[in-house]
């Protein structure tokens, strides 16, 4: 998949390793999950619960709720409002969440 977003050249920053849909990625610690998704080329991170349309990070500021993902087993987390953490597992959000 082509990469539409690239990180700006910056001073070297500490990295963490996260798991995006099974692929391991090294990303700077200051990234949000949405930034990591976009840098990895993941434009669509979920399918909507009503029509199944693909959606991905859009507003990047917590407003549009289009970047919902499952993080460490918790559904419907806003990727743009969540900072990456070492070992984090990010999965696409497909349809409606299930109650535990």
């Amino acid at each position: 998949m082509p990469t539409h977003f690239e990180s700006l050249a910056t001073l070297s920053t500490p990295l963490v390793c996260i798991d995006i849909d099974g692929a391991h990625r090294q990303v700077p610690t200051h990234y949000t999950v949405a930034a990591a998704l976009l840098e990895s080329g993941t434009l669509a991170c979920r399918n909507t619960p009503v029509s199944g349309a693909p959606r991905g990070p859009f507003c990047m500021m917590g407003v549009c709720f289009d970047c919902l993902v499952e993080i460490d087993g918790v559904p419907n987390v806003q990727a743009c409002m969540t900072r990456v953490r070492e070992g984090m597992r990010v999965r696409p959000m497909s349809g409606k969440a299930r109650l535990a």
Partner: peptide, 16 residues
Amino acid sequence: TPLRGQIMVTERLAPF
């Protein structure tokens, strides 16, 4: 007269 009701809405959940 007005009578206020408050409502909360959850995320989309599988039918339960």
